[in-house]
Design a protein around this nucleic acid. Structure first.
Length: 604
RNA sequence: GGUCCCGUGGUGUAGCGGCCUAACACGCCUCCCUGUCAAGGAGGAGAUCGGCAGUUCGAAUCUGCUCGGGAUCGCCA
């Protein structure tokens, strides 16, 4: 070893001992005759003093040191002189009196400082990711990620789960997301596809009798990127045999509580409570979304009834077309000026609303009963009479000084818009503690959704979820009524994972496929292997797929999963460090029998 | 594919029609300095303002296109 102690370890108990450390020069403070070096490694920072009276050789070398040089230093741990202690580092009471130094490697001046405080452009960070990852904050994030995966491994291993790896080179089962594909050399013209998830494989493993499977699995989807979406993400994939929905939920809830508690300790207030369970219907009614942020109230209220007798075309047109009017109350936002209300309207429009009606309530009245004409303002004031506003405000539990926001449209659009507004305002108005983490289950999802564009039924989640037994009859008569044993784990307004009890009866599976409109040979091509396995004795089974990147990011308080992925891609799916994706040689193309036919602007 | 924000020395920002032959902080280089830890002091180098085209007597500053980054809608079984 090049060292017998880590930089962050020595303390006053080590005074007088000789140690060898190695690491990076974090900072140099050169006083001429006395030189201080902050030596950094993963464990922390240690101050090293070079005194020419202790070693003139070491001191001579130290005067050349620069940031990020890699050095090995031998010396004696000594107590710092009185008054020179530094409470901000773990080794602040002592320092290393250097007697020997060996320069292991020099470094160019890094493009940015290795420090936690600075904010650097993402592209620069990724192009120099090896330096970016040196920052203590990043090291902490990946240590955290490791800790979480270890907790998963331990927890599930203790409960008889077996980790099994499934292939990355698989087959395209096109549906939902676009596949990443890999050409086959041995089979000209044929392609593997990278799995969007190990779904079929884990179900086949259940058929094989493994009983309980899990995998920290990489999943690939060739879709547009977001702060919480990367082309490849990691999923905690698990599946269990002979279970009902509740068994899976209880297992996963135990796991997530355990991990969150291990990481956050007492800051995780939900630890001694069950995760809230909301039916899909309830979640949509109260929050307008199937992934509500439960850190704050601000629920949606339907006010179609209260507004059905206005003179306003905005409302009447919508109501005449079976639309709804729903609203939320932004507490204390009654004094928002034009600029702020415009911002809210813009957000509503960008979420798909044709418009947004607001009513600002002033603070200068005590209760809704005493509301007067002077106490409220609204662009639609001439239609919103005092009595209507009073009734509305009472129904919505608005208080003086609040801002009422109303959206009139078809129900699903209203819900999308209001849930986006709700999330926006929740953050803007500081309605919750940003450090808080609240999980919930949303269950009892419909199995199918009607796709208005394609005029056909689409799987609401995925095609393998089992219809509820009591709904089997609806499969033929009214697929929209079929609910499934399908459930999501949500946290702070994010979907953390999705699970279900799977279909294990090949006949029901075929029926579900046919409702979605798959042809017989198409089913065979995409799902033949699964159906085939089902005909050889498939146990009832169910499981979940849980986004690991999002979970780690949430526990770390990060918004973008890029922060918890060592080598992520930019929003245009590129890696600035490796410069991927990239061209391959003509020879490689030839071997694969691939001719490129690029659009003109791609030529160069 | 759409919408929005951003793009100025190595990094972060200021400047938003002529005062800019571009400012500040950090970093970098040289020298001084025995107790600093965001060390200090003195001096110095470094960007033509993402790119292209246009408007203008004059553009970092205005317009269009384009490239890149970010956010978001669509998309993501």
């Amino acid at each position: 070893m090049y060292k017998n102690k880590n930089c962050g370890e020595p303390n006053s108990l080590d005074e007088g001992t000789e140690i060898i450390v190695a690491g990076w020069v974090n900072r140099r403070r050169d006083h001429g005759n006395l030189i201080f070096i902050d030596l950094r490694d993963k464990s922390g920072v240690l101050q090293v003093v070079f005194n020419p009276e202790v070693s003139s050789d070491a001191h001579g070398l130290a005067s050349d040191l620069r940031s990020e040089w890699v050095v090995q230093i031998k010396g004696k741990i000594v107590k710092r002189i009185s008054g020179a202690e530094n409470d901000s580092i773990s080794t602040g009471s002592i320092e290393l009196q250097a007697s020997e130094i060996k320069i292991l490697n020099k470094s160019k001046t890094p493009p940015f400082e290795i420090s936690n405080e600075i904010e650097i452009d993402d592209q620069t960070r990724l192009a120099y990711r090896f330096i970016d990852l040196r920052r203590p904050k990043m090291q902490k994030l990946f240590t955290l990620r490791h800790k979480i995966t270890k907790l998963i491994w331990d927890y599930l291993s203790d409960r008889d789960f077996t980790h099994i790896e499934t292939p990355i080179l698989l087959k395209s089962t096109p549906e939902g997301a676009r596949d990443y594909v890999v050409p086959s050399r041995i089979h000209p013209g044929k392609f593997y596809a990278l799995p969007q998830s190990p779904q079929q494989l884990k179900q086949i493993l259940m058929v094989s009798g493994f009983d309980r499977y899990f995998q920290i699995a990489r999943c690939f989807r060739d879709e547009d990127l977001r702060a919480d979406r990367q082309p490849e993400h990691t999923q905690l994939d698990l599946e269990m045999s002979f279970v009902h929905q509740d068994d899976v939920m209880v297992l996963v809830e135990g796991l997530y509580k355990h991990i969150t508690h291990e990481i956050l300790g007492d800051n995780f207030k939900q630890n001694d409570r069950d995760f809230l369970r909301l039916s899909y219907k309830e979640s949509m009614e109260r929050f307008g979304t199937d992934k509500p942020d439960l850190r704050f109230e601000m629920e949606l209220v339907t006010v179609s009834e209260e507004l059905k007798n206005t003179e306003s075309n905005v409302f009447n047109n919508v109501l005449n077309q079976q639309g709804v009017i729903r609203g939320i109350v932004a507490p204390g936002a009654g004094d928002y000026d034009r600029r702020k209300t415009d911002e809210i309207i813009d957000l509503a429009k960008s979420s798909g609303a044709s418009g947004l009606v607001y009513i600002s309530l002033s603070k200068d009245f005590d209760s809704m009963e005493n509301l007067t004409d002077e106490n409220y303002k609204s662009p639609l004031k001439k239609f919103l009479t005092l009595n209507i506003v009073k009734e509305l405000a009472i129904k919505m539990s608005a208080r003086p000084g609040d801002l009422i926001l109303l959206v009139a449209d078809q129900e699903n659009k209203v819900n999308t818009v209001l849930s986006n507004l709700r999330n926006f305002l929740g953050e803007k108005l500081n309605l919750y503690d940003k450090k808080e983490i609240i999980f919930a289950w949303v269950y009892d999802f419909p199995l199918f959704e009607w796709d208005e564009d394609l005029k056909k039924w689409e799987p609401a989640h995925h095609v393998f979820s089992s219809p509820k037994e009591e709904h089997l009859d609806f499969l033929k008569s009214d697929p929209g009524k079929v609910h499934a044993d399908l459930f999501d784990l949500v946290c702070n307004g994010m979907e953390m994972g999705s699970g279900s009890i799977r279909i294990h009866d090949p006949n029901i599976q075929k029926k579900v496929f046919s409702i979605i409109g798959y042809e017989e040979d198409e089913i065979d091509d995409r799902f033949g292997q699964l159906i085939k396995s089902f005909s050889y004795g498939a146990p009832p089974h169910g499981g979940m797929g849980l986004g690991l990147d999002r979970f780690v990011a949430t526990l770390a308080g990060e918004k973008a999963i890029r922060e918890v992925i060592a080598f992520p891609k930019t929003q245009s799916a590129q890696d600035p460090l490796f410069d991927s994706p990239n061209k391959i040689s003509d020879q490689q193309l030839e071997e694969l029998f691939i001719n490129l036919d690029l659009p003109d602007e791609e030529e160069a």
